[in-house]
């Protein structure tokens, strides 16, 4: 066997690897891709600052520029950003919506206004951006060729209306809950409602999540217990009130953003969710027999 072959092999392997590392280190841009963070947008923010935030989101967190080129180019995947405000202003002239509604709709219900020649490839922006961030991006888009009418928090009601109607489209049919249902089955339905139809899990996840500031599922009942004691109410009534009239009692440091549950769930389903929440921290007392108490809370809230 000839000597020296192994040494040359080692040199070749290490030499090539070092060369490729060199290219990776010195010929490619060096930046990290961090998880998106919530950008704080305070009430009464100056328009210039809002537009700047919108631009940053467009290039960064929103990843809009991956598909939308700054200027029109042949074979572009999605419309160019430059002049998009003017294009929208022209388009809404023959429509029943104003520019603000059009832009919000295009961001949250992305298949609503697909321009000719483009495929419906855009994902819904509300999955990635907060309400404030959506407004900032919308204002920046409008600024590209039109007068900016979108502002924060003035545009929030319009956006929320659209978000609400978008959410409602996804609501599934009510689940039939029979009177003789076992507690086990009731809790199972409650979990389904909590996770899916009710969407409770998005703000109250099952485990700690650094992006979420609201109480997580395992501590919900103890929070309810604490605030019920403060208010001098029984736990069951307070729990129902929190679900159907969440604005009635907002814990210190929290925003009043929770929607009323009866808009999405039937009374029986609310009972199931309440039982499920109770099951995560104590003895389950809620059952279909609690329906009169719940109905009372709904009536108090001004509902059906």
């Amino acid at each position: 066997m000839k000597k020296g072959g192994f040494g040359k092999l080692v040199v070749l392997i290490i030499g090539l690897s070092v060369f490729y590392t060199y290219v990776g280190l010195y010929f490619l841009p060096q930046s990290e891709s961090l998880p998106p963070v919530v950008i704080e947008i305070r009430e009464g923010i100056e328009q210039d600052e809002l537009l700047k935030i919108g631009e940053d989101i467009l290039f960064g967190k929103g990843q809009c520029m991956v598909c939308h080129p700054n200027k029109p180019e042949p074979g572009m995947r999605s419309p160019a950003i430059s002049g998009i405000g003017a294009v929208i202003a022209e388009r809404v002239k023959n429509m029943d919506v104003n520019e603000e509604e059009f832009i919000f709709q295009a961001l949250v219900d992305t298949k609503a206004y697909i321009p000719e020649g483009f495929a419906p490839i855009m994902p819904p922006s509300q999955k990635l951006l907060t309400e404030g961030e959506l407004i900032a991006v919308s204002a920046f888009l409008q600024s590209k060729g039109s007068d900016v009418t979108i502002s924060y928090p003035e545009s929030l009601p319009t956006l929320r209306k659209l978000l609400g109607s978008k959410e409602k489209k996804a609501v599934v049919a009510s689940v039939e809950i029979k009177k003789d249902i076992s507690q086990e089955e009731l809790l199972k339905i409650g979990k389904d409602m909590y996770d899916d139809k009710g969407g409770c899990i998005e703000c109250h996840p099952a485990a700690l999540d650094p992006d979420v500031e609201f109480p997580i599922l395992p501590v919900l009942l103890s929070e309810v217990q604490k605030h019920a004691d403060e208010k001098g109410s029984d736990v069951e009534s307070f729990l129902f009130e929190s679900l159907v009239n969440p604005g009635a009692y907002v814990a210190e440091g929290m925003d009043d953003i929770m929607p009323a549950t009866q808009d999405e769930l039937s009374p029986e389903e609310i009972i199931a969710v309440s039982a499920y929440i109770q099951s995560k921290g104590g003895k389950v007392t809620v059952s279909l027999d609690s329906l009169p108490k719940l109905t009372k809370e709904i009536e108090k809230a001004g509902g059906q």
Binding site: I13, S17, Y20, T21, G24, L25, Y26, E32, S33
Partner: peptide, 19 residues
């Protein structure tokens, strides 16, 4: 570690693995 490292860092790991 919930982030994507720089391309240079990824290249170093690729080289270590290869060697």
């Amino acid at each position: 570690d919930a982030f994507l490292p720089t391309h240079g860092f990824a290249s170093v790991v690729a080289s270590i693995t290869t060697i």
